[in-house]
């Protein structure tokens, strides 16, 4: 028995050491270095077993995504708020829904959303299929009457044929959600100058951008990577980042979903890939640009009791701040905006 206990302890100890080495490795900041490779996005994205990606499903999803006639007043589509010309967001501090009514939170950019563990700022939706119908159903957003919408879609032979080809005969809410999710999984940011540099192109980043990357991952300087982890620049976690909130009716964020103290005012860590394309920033859209984002994190959080324990007070020179911003610009993807679909008339 003693031998068994010793074996267990020794084996576990060895494994712990191995993991410690793997997670605390030091970076060698040279283009293509092996220590940096975990910043590259995976080649493939996980798909649900019952909704594998096909060209037909993606094409159908794209039509539905861009069709403004699906909204109750036939003038609002998914793309109204998730506009590819504005980084798959809307350029507004907070979204505007049905009849232009302001929504409580900013429109999240859709880059790499298929890699998210949970969807929405508060993580209330588990999958893209689960999420897709929520803004449609919300009376403050697309305010869709689903029977009316399905009847509308069914009135076009092209749509009926597209559903049959992609899934099977008949238009259903479930198939609409699946097709939208299939299209959203194609919105990927993995082809930036930063990616080229990680792959070995030493000329892909400027000196300031490389310096900004060093500051970004340095826990004693920018401390950004504590939450913006590789490869998608997110820990898929929820944090209260100390944004000022209205005292009368604060948005408690993730706390609405999980009643745990640390989640009061906590929101999902957004990916930073292609982040420069989707200003303004934060869940409440209060940072107009990346400089204001940096200014927020340069505050003294010492006396803010509700703030995430991941945050700590950081000090950067004006030059270092600009270098981190320059680095963030290097995360902008160069993939072309998809061609717009031809909608059935």
């Amino acid at each position: 028995m003693k031998a068994a206990v010793c074996f267990l302890i020794v084996t576990t100890g060895a494994l712990l050491v191995r993991f410690a080495v793997a997670s605390e490795q030091q970076y060698n900041f040279k283009a293509g270095d092996v220590s940096l490779q975990h910043w590259l996005m995976p080649v493939r994205m996980d798909e649900p077993k019952d909704n594998k990606q096909t060209a037909q499903r993606i094409a159908l999803g794209k039509m539905l995504f861009f069709d403004p006639r699906l909204g109750r007043n036939k003038n609002i589509s998914c793309a109204t708020c998730h506009n590819p010309l504005l980084g798959w967001s809307d350029g507004l501090p907070v979204g505007q829904g049905h009849q232009g009514v302001p929504l409580p939170r900013a429109t999240p950019a859709l880059y790499n959303t298929g890699f998210n563990v949970l969807q929405m700022w508060d993580g209330r939706k588990r999958s893209l299929e689960d999420q897709a119908l929520a803004p449609m159903a919300a009376d403050t957003e697309m305010n869709v009457d689903f029977d009316q919408m399905i009847s509308f879609i069914n009135s076009f032979p092209e749509y009926r044929a597209a559903f049959k080809t992609a899934y099977s005969e008949g238009v259903t809410k479930e198939k609409i959600a699946k097709a939208l999710a299939s299209f959203e999984r194609t919105i990927v940011s993995d082809n930036s100058p930063f990616d080229d540099w990680i792959k070995g192109d030493a000329s892909a980043l400027t000196g300031d951008q490389i310096a900004g990357f060093k500051l970004f991952v340095d826990a004693e300087k920018g401390n950004c990577a504590v939450c913006h982890n590789p490869p998608n620049f997110t820990d898929n976690g929820f944090h209260n980042i100390g944004l000022k909130v209205a005292r009368e009716k604060p948005d408690l964020g993730r706390y609405h979903i999980r009643k745990v103290a640390v989640l009061k005012g906590a929101f999902k860590t957004p990916s930073l890939r292609s982040i420069a394309k989707s200003a303004p920033f934060f869940h409440d859209g209060t940072a107009k640009n990346l400089a204001q984002v940096m200014d927020h994190y340069l505050q003294d959080f010492t006396h803010n009791k509700g703030v995430s324990p991941a945050l700590k007070t950081i000090k950067l020179t004006a030059q270092e701040k600009q270098q981190i911003i320059a680095f963030l610009h290097s995360l902008s993807d160069r993939n072309e905006i998809p061609t717009l679909p031809v909608l059935p008339q």
Binding site: D235, N236, G237, F238, V260, A266
Partner: peptide
Amino acid sequence: VECAIHPQ
């Protein structure tokens, strides 16, 4: 049992 910060 979950982690509040990291839902995975």
